[in-house]
Design a protein around this nucleic acid. Structure first.
Lengths: 225, 225
DNA sequence: ATAGATTTATGATTTTGGTCATATTTCATT
DNA sequence: AATGAAATATGACCAAAATCATAAATCTAT
């Protein structure tokens, strides 16, 4: 099992603000785990009792709506933490976390980290910053959901994934999402998402290679009305 | 000018975690101000350089969308803080704050409070909790925006305002919003919001007295499909 | 009190997107 | 390689909501 203080992943999240001693202590009580594509890491209502540090892989955070659809709220990737919000409020999970591909996670129990939050103000300020950033993003998504068309939201989603998670050597988006996932990010029906993607293809904005998507014309996508 | 350490308002927000000494210091550098209904307290892109503590009145936090509509993201009332998010990330405001009625505010400069965030971990943990709560609410709004109808969202908005901000003696919602404000919370056209309200009236779920709204049948509103 | 402006209200029409049906393609498993 | 299941794709139709037009009510300022 790897050591937190040597783990490169810690650089990408608030754990970087912990001292070497704190990291050594956490290292001693963390548990590493792997989850397979499609596995649910936690679901709404679960008491998580800790945070997960994503060492590898990608997962989606979603919430089941009363109409039976699963709205995706955030994509979490290597380097991110998972479950901080519940840790802080002490509430059960508000969202479900589902692996989008095979993942490697470290689980840090609540007790270990809550003390650091209360005693290491640099750490808690850093968590605060991440939370503030998430809140800004969430506000922006609300505005988009409320005011933009499915076409615009889908175009923006493709660009977002491209810009934040990168591409494979062939130029396709490195995060492979099903059409249903796209629909659940955008908040639309699967058929509508597919239809809009077909439209984008016809307009030369994207190419699809199987279910993979490649952007041909970023500027065009940004201009989608 | 009132003293922070004696201000009843501090009980309702994270300022309650500050020591008497910290509050006395802040008291010495805060500025009280009043803003009139309709006044913009800050707009998107402004450097706020501090936080506002709402002593009286109500304001909306909104963001202008590219389609020209102003999406309301949150209603802020007496006791809440305003501008914490920007304070923490050091970014300019992501949202515009507009007074919905005459307000009394205290402005606390950034310098004063950032030190407390870094040194008083109880305070920063408390701010963290509020932010985590806001984030949960924002996630829930995303799901509602994406998956529910205008009818459902408007019904929920009326219930939300009723439950959180209370009613006048005559039973009408104490927060008086224009039909346009309702439309901008729900994320719909003004005409659609008005139409749905008329529908609710016909169904006996609400009564309107001028622009004021009174709930007649909470259970019915909750059951709106 | 009155004119003008703003807000609320309602109807007609169009657009967007959802639902249902049905192919077609892709993928996993034997 | 063959088969069945799941995902992708497309058409037809329907429902929800946007837009445009216009009227009625309410508010504001002289």
């Amino acid at each position: 099992m790897g050591k937190c203080e040597q783990c490169i992943i810690k650089q990408f999240n608030a754990l970087k603000s912990l001292s070497k001693e704190e990291l050594v202590r956490i290292s001693g009580c963390k548990t590493s785990m792997t989850v397979k594509k499609g596995d649910v890491i936690f679901e709404e209502g679960d008491s998580i009792n800790g945070v997960y540090c994503v060492k590898d892989g990608i997962c989606k955070l979603s919430k089941l709506s009363s109409n039976g659809k699963d709205q995706i709220v955030k994509i979490v990737v290597k380097g991110d933490l998972l479950g901080q919000r519940s840790l802080i409020t002490g509430e059960t999970a508000n969202l479900q976390a589902t692996a989008l591909n095979d993942m490697e996670l470290c689980f840090i129990p609540k007790n270990e980290i809550v003390n650091d939050l209360l005693n290491n103000s640099k750490f808690s300020f850093d968590v605060l910053k991440e939370m503030a950033h998430d809140l800004k993003k969430a506000d922006d998504i609300i505005v988009n959901m409320a005011q933009k068309t499915v076409r615009q939201r889908l175009a923006e989603t493709i660009i977002y994934i491209h810009d934040n998670f990168g591409t494979n050597p062939d130029g396709t988006l490195s995060v492979l999402l099903s059409r249903e996932d796209f629909a659940n990010i955008v908040g639309t029906a699967v058929e509508s998402a597919i239809r809009v993607l077909s439209q984008f293809k016809k307009e030369g904005l994207i190419t699809t290679i199987g279910k993979r998507i490649k952007i041909n014309n970023v500027e065009g996508l940004k201009r989608v009305e």
